[in-house]
């Protein structure tokens, strides 16, 4: 039974691997895709200070996360890119405590390096010859972008509605889109892979990011993580990634 010995060996390895993992408490943090880089940095800083806690990040579009949480996916902390998504979670009675706004963000037009579409701002989003992308409606960056375009009175000629801000940015980076409306922080995170064209404050939209501990959370770890995000150290990391922290 050569096969049987392989199976036994496999199981032994599987058991060893699972036993080998440490005794740290896992805290599941569901965070908006636009928080990817900042929350990875915060995770590292937090775990350094709290070696007994293992932060597990689940990064996706806020509305995807909302559906996961409403469907009962394991999550201890929720950080959303807009308040209405958080309000729905609160309305469903799933928050352990009231949500706190911990960061703000603003929109910016992202274009590939050298700006091949010669785009100067939101006003170019009705040029049919361009290949343009937005986040899908229902995703915060998509709703904000539609709002900003409405403020400037532009009816956009959109070629793709992306499921989250990072997939939109990827297609701008690759040069397949001439422009996309993303967050300022995403342009910053992409370094020189995209160029950012600022949107003037009077036509821009301010995204406010709330964070909250969810019901049934691993109480100590989850609350400590939220406290850290709101602390001076947490705010410093967020500010480094371009967020407004007030």
């Amino acid at each position: 039974m050569k096969n049987a010995s392989w199976i036994v060996a496999f199981l032994a390895v599987a058991v060893l691997v699972s036993c080998g993992s440490d005794e740290r408490t896992e805290v599941f943090v569901s965070a908006a895709a636009s928080l990817t880089d900042s929350f990875e940095a915060i995770e590292e800083a937090f775990e350094e200070r709290n070696p007994s806690v293992d932060i597990v990040l689940n990064l996706a579009g806020s509305s995807t996360l909302r559906e996961q949480i409403l469907a009962g996916a394991p999550a201890d902390v929720f950080a959303s890119a807009n308040e209405s998504v958080m309000d729905e979670i609160a309305g469903a009675g799933l928050l352990a405590s009231a949500a706190t706004v911990f960061a703000t963000n603003r929109l910016e037009v992202a274009v590939p390096p050298a700006n091949p579409g010669a785009i100067s701002g939101l006003g170019d989003f009705d040029r049919e010859e361009l290949v343009l992308g937005l986040c899908a409606s229902g995703v915060p960056c998509g709703d904000f972008a539609i709002e900003a375009l409405r403020i400037v009175g532009v009816d956009p000629m959109v070629d793709t509605y992306e499921p989250n801000v990072r997939s939109l940015l990827t297609k701008v980076e690759s040069g397949d889109l001439d422009a996309g409306i993303v967050y300022y922080t995403d342009v910053l995170a992409a370094h020189d892979r995209v160029e950012g064209i600022p949107i003037p404050a009077e036509t821009n939209v301010v995204a406010r990011y709330p964070i909250a501990v969810l019901q049934g959370a691993v109480d100590t770890g989850a609350a400590a993580f939220v406290a850290f995000v709101l602390s001076a150290d947490g705010r410093e990391i967020l500010a480094e990634h371009g967020f407004g922290t007030r």
Binding site: R66, G138, T160, Y161, E162, P163
Partner: peptide, 26 residues
């Protein structure tokens, strides 16, 4: 969705429509 994007009438197939609708219109 990764290669062709998502636009109604041009690239939005049924699975993409499900994915988008899940977040706004269950």
């Amino acid at each position: 969705i990764t290669f062709a994007g998502n636009l109604q009438g041009r690239t939005q197939t049924l699975p993409l429509a499900v994915f988008v609708a899940l977040e706004s219109d269950r």
